[in-house]
Design a protein around this nucleic acid. Structure first.
Length: 105
DNA sequence: CATATGACCTTCC
DNA sequence: AGGAAGGCCATAT
C-alpha cells in the first residue's frame, strides 16, 4: 500500500459522518492521527468520488464552521442549503453551529 | 523531471 | 489578545 492510503482513510472517516451532522477538516485529520495533514484532507475531498462514493464532502466544513466557497458542489450556497435539508442549523453569521451539529466521534 | 500550489489547522511571538 | 508563520502529502503544470 502506498501513502495514498491516507486519502482512503479520509474517505473512511468522512463516510462515518452521520446525517444532519458536520465534521471539520482538522477533526478528521486528527482522527487519522495526522493533525498536520488537515490540508490534504481537503485535497482528498477534492479528489473524492463524491457522495455517490459515500463521501459527503458537503458535511465537511472549516474549523470555524464556514463552508468551502467556490470549490463545493455549486457554491457554498448550495452546500449550505443541503446541510439545512439534512437538519443542520446555521448561525446568523452564515456559519454552521458546530456547538450543536459538530460530529462527535 | 522539478517546481509550485493547495477545501486547513496549530502553535509561537 | 491579535497577528504571523509553519507544516505536511499529493496533484497539476
Amino acid at each position: 500500500m502506498t501513502d495514498g492510503d491516507f486519502f482512503q482513510r479520509a474517505y473512511n472517516i468522512v463516510r462515518q459522518v452521520p446525517k444532519g451532522r458536520v465534521a471539520t477538516y482538522g477533526q478528521v485529520a486528527r482522527m487519522m492521527g495526522e493533525p498536520r495533514k488537515a490540508r490534504y484532507v481537503g485535497f482528498a475531498m477534492h479528489s473524492s468520488p463524491g457522495m455517490k462514493g459515500g463521501v459527503p464532502c458537503h458535511r465537511i466544513v472549516f474549523a470555524d464552521g464556514s463552508l468551502a466557497p467556490g470549490f463545493a458542489f455549486g457554491g457554498a450556497d448550495e452546500q449550505q442549503r443541503m446541510l439545512e435539508a439534512e437538519g443542520v442549523g446555521f448561525l446568523p453569521n452564515g456559519k454552521v453551529d458546530l456547538r450543536q451539529y459538530l460530529w462527535e466521534a
